[in-house]
């Protein structure tokens, strides 16, 4: 069995030039596992004879080689799958796993990519978002990676996806029971900035000793008059583990609570997997006199007029012009397709 722990592959970012591929709309791109690799990703092709390789392809040198479905070898997938099952059985607990080197830098979501690779099957429809958008370099590269290595269908439409890998957002559209949301996590340990030693944070989780976190939030209140944390706002899962929701805006925290979708979290560099099963309590930490509140926006989306969604600020010109638009690009596009209009979208409805 070939171990994937080597650094022989160049980063994916070098292979996939920015903007080379746009987002793929709709579903139905070929779900054929025997997808051919083109020149751009041929460095991803591993040694021949790797266990369970479903496809044989010709690379640039016309050597017959094989690669593993969704890149990871079967033993690695088994190890990740076992960790996922433990994570589901112990909601919010960080399961250690032997993270593999992936052909992309850590900041690109190698933990999420490994989780996605372990769950993905030929019938899945994959959506990848980064800060809510399907068309950023990171999202495009990861989507392209799974198109090449797994041949799965991809989509930008939240409703059509069975697996959604995300960095920094939860889609605005309510997720459904058949969907799996995979989060890319940089720092899985919510206590890390309060207690740098892993042995100590393990003990604190084991003892359910979370006073440190409450002290931190209360210091926020003392200093700012409110809890200043707006991203990666800590949550308690099913009344037991305090969990980092990944660097999503706290606006998204309520979407995690009793979601119908299975939520899986992968941290590649820190080698942790954790999970929130469907219909599980996910409660943002707060105090009776300082209850948790999500961000609110003064005006609706300038393009689609949506209210009650998370907005990004977009600079329009160098004279200070700016507008606020949906961070969830699919949500915004769908609304505009339905005829919704915002203040800056041209003709009004």
């Amino acid at each position: 069995m070939t171990d994937m722990d080597d650094a022989r592959f160049p980063p994916l970012s070098n292979s996939l030039p920015r903007g080379e591929r746009g987002p793929v709309g709709g579903s139905g791109a070929g779900a054929d596992a025997g997808v051919e690799l083109n020149g751009a990703l041929s460095p991803l092709v591993g040694e021949s004879g790797r266990e369970g390789a479903p496809g044989a392809v010709l690379d640039d040198q016309a050597n017959l080689r094989t690669y593993s479905f969704a890149y990871l070898d079967e033993q690695t997938k088994r190890m990740i799958r076992r960790a996922i099952l433990k994570g589901i059985a112990i909601p919010g607990y960080q399961v250690p796993f032997a993270s593999r080197e992936m052909p992309m830098p850590y900041g690109w979501g190698t933990g999420g990519v490994q989780v996605t690779a372990a769950v993905l099957g030929p019938d899945d429809v994959l959506k990848v978002i980064d800060q809510g958008a399907d068309d950023t370099t990171n999202a495009v590269a990861i989507r392209g990676f799974f198109q090449k290595t797994a041949g799965v269908a991809t989509t930008t439409r939240t409703a059509d996806a069975t697996v959604i890998q995300t960095r920094h957002r939860i889609p605005e559209r309510t997720l459904q029971a058949h969907q799996i949301l995979v989060y890319q996590v940089p720092i899985p340990e919510p206590l890390r900035y309060l207690e740098p030693r892993e042995t100590e944070t393990r003990k604190l989780h084991g003892l359910e000793e979370y006073g440190l976190m409450h002290v931190k939030l209360y210091e926020d209140i003392a200093r700012h008059g409110h809890i200043a944390t707006t991203y990666a706002y800590p949550v308690k899962v099913e009344g037991r583990y305090i969990m980092d929701p990944s660097p999503t805006p706290k606006f998204d925290n309520p979407k995690m609570h009793r979601s119908k979708a299975l939520q899986l979290f992968g941290a590649g560099r820190e080698k942790r997997i954790y999970a929130v099963p469907p219909h599980t309590d996910v409660v943002s930490l707060d105090f009776e006199d300082h209850p948790f509140r999500i961000q609110t926006f003064k005006e609706p989306c300038a393009l689609c007029g949506a209210e009650g969604v998370y907005l990004d600020e977009v600079i329009l010109d160098d004279r200070g012009g700016r507008m606020f638009v949906c961070s969830d690009t699919d949500h915004c596009e769908e609304r505009r397709a339905e005829g919704h209009r915002g203040a800056l979208s041209g003709e009004s409805r």
Partner: peptide, 14 residues
């Protein structure tokens, strides 16, 4: 077909 069968069984167990 170890790759796809184990994936399908895993998804059922998950």
């Amino acid at each position: 077909d170890p790759v796809f069968q184990s994936q399908a069984v895993f998804r059922a167990v998950m």
